[in-house]
Simulated scan of single mutants.
Amino acid sequence: MAAIFEATCTAPVNIAVVKYWGKRDTSLILPTNSSLSVTLSQDQLHSKTSIRASADFTTDRLWLNGIEESIEKNKRLVACLRETRALRATLEAENATLPKLAGLKIHICSENNFPTAAGLASSASGYACLVYTLSKLFELPLNASDLSVVARQGSGSACRSLFGGFVAWEMGEKADGSDSRAVQIAPETHWPDLQAMICVVSDEKKGTSSTEGMQLTVKTSALLQHRIKDVVPKRMDDMIAAIHAKDFPKFAELTMQDSNQFHAVCLDTYPPIFYMNDISRAIIRIITEYNKDGVKAAYTFDAGPNAVIYAPKENMAEIFSILSHYFPGAAFDDSLNLVKENPEKVAAGLPQNFDARISPVFAQGAVKQILHTKADDGPRTLDSAQHGLLNAAGLPKRLA
C-alpha cells in the first residue's frame, strides 16, 4: 500500500461591510474595488475539508457535501490545484529529500455546516478551506496574505477568509494580480464586544449567482461606476478608521450605507437583480426603528435575502427579543448563552417607544433560523485521524 499524505482543516465565513461586486479580470478574479469584511466564528459557520494524496489514486476526485462533483469542469478549482501543485513542485526541485507530492492524484472531501449558495458566503469559506488545506498538505511556506492570492482565484471573497478578525481585500493595480490580496486590518481580539446575529431567511440556492450577477452589473450599471470611483475609496478609509477606533455608530452607519448601495447597484443592473425579499426589507425597517434614538445595530445583506446584524454584545438580547416578536418560530442555537444569561431581556418583547406598526408579524418559520456569533479566528488545522472526512479507502465517510 502506498504512503498516505493527508490534511484536514476548517475555514470561516466572512461577511463584508464594504462589498465586493464586480471583476475587472474574470479569469484572475481581480475586483473593480477594494472590500472589507468581518470573519465570523467557525463554531457556528465553517467549511471543513480533508485532502489526501496517494500513489494508489488514479484520478483527482472531489466530493462536496457528500456528492461527487467534476473537477475538470470547475476552472476555478483547477486554477487553485494548478497553483498549489506548482508551488509544491518548486519546493521538491529545491529539496530532493521531500516526498514527491506534486505529481500525486488527490481526493478532496469538503462539507459546509450551513446551506451552500444561499447568500451565506459558502464559496468564500469553501475555497479558503480548499487552498489552506492544500497548503498544509503540500507544506507550502506561504503566509496568509500570499496564500490569499491563490484563494482569490477560486472565489474572490475567499481571500478574506484566510484571516481572522477584520480583513481588507486590496484590489491592487497590477495586471497579473500579484498585488490583489487580503490583509488583516485588526485581529479578532481587537473588538471583542462586537457580535453578529444572522437571520436565515432562505436556505435555497439563489436565482442569480454572484458570478453571473456581478458581471451583468459591470456591463450595465452606471451607478456601479460612481461607486467604484467616488464612493468606495473613501468608505474603505472611513471603515478602517472606525474599526481601529472601535467606533460602533460610525461602523454601523457605513455598513448599512454600503449594503444599501450594493443592492441599489443590483437594482440599477439591466435587467435588475433582486436578492432581498419582503422579509429582508422588514428587517431593514425593524433595525431602522430600533436605531431611531441612537445607532445600536447595523444590518447588512450580501447576494441573498439573509440578514447579518452587527451590534455590541450588550444589545444582542434586546435585538433577539425584537426579532422573535416579528419572526416567531425561528430555530436558535444558544451556543453563546444569550438566552441563558439574559432570560428577562430575551422575553421582554418590543422595547418602550418602539413603533410596532413598522412591520407585520410574519408567519411561523418566515425566518428559519437565527444564529448568534462573533468575530473570530482564521482557518484551523485539525487532526485527520480524529476529524478527517475520508475513510481508509480515501472515500467520503458520509455520502448524500
Score class of each variant (00 low, 15 high):
12 P>W: 09
16 A>T: 06
19 K>Y: 13
20 Y>G: 09
22 G>E: 08
24 R>Y: 04
26 T>V: 11
27 S>Y: 14
28 L>K: 14
29 I>Y: 04
31 P>F: 03
31 P>A: 05
32 T>A: 11
34 S>P: 12
39 T>N: 02
41 S>D: 10
41 S>A: 09
45 L>G: 04
45 L>V: 09
45 L>F: 11
46 H>T: 12
46 H>G: 11
47 S>P: 01
48 K>H: 03
51 I>A: 00
53 A>Y: 02
55 A>E: 13
55 A>V: 07
56 D>I: 02
58 T>Y: 15
58 T>W: 13
58 T>N: 15
59 T>C: 13
59 T>S: 15
61 R>E: 03
62 L>S: 05
62 L>T: 00
63 W>A: 06
64 L>V: 14
64 L>P: 04
65 N>Q: 08
68 E>N: 02
68 E>Y: 04
70 S>I: 11
73 K>P: 07
74 N>V: 03
76 R>M: 07
78 V>A: 14
80 C>R: 08
80 C>L: 11
80 C>K: 08
80 C>V: 07
83 E>P: 08
84 T>Q: 10
85 R>L: 03
88 R>L: 09
91 L>N: 10
92 E>H: 00
92 E>V: 04
92 E>Y: 00
93 A>K: 12
94 E>H: 04
95 N>I: 02
96 A>T: 14
96 A>M: 11
99 P>K: 10
100 K>L: 05
101 L>R: 01
103 G>M: 07
105 K>T: 06
106 I>R: 09
108 I>S: 01
110 S>T: 15
110 S>F: 04
111 E>W: 14
111 E>C: 13
111 E>K: 15
115 P>F: 12
116 T>A: 15
117 A>M: 11
117 A>W: 07
117 A>V: 11
117 A>C: 11
118 A>T: 00
118 A>D: 03
118 A>K: 05
118 A>W: 06
119 G>I: 09
120 L>H: 08
120 L>P: 03
123 S>D: 09
124 A>Q: 01
126 G>N: 03
126 G>I: 04
127 Y>F: 15
130 L>R: 06
130 L>Q: 05
130 L>M: 13
131 V>C: 13
135 S>F: 07
137 L>R: 02
137 L>S: 02
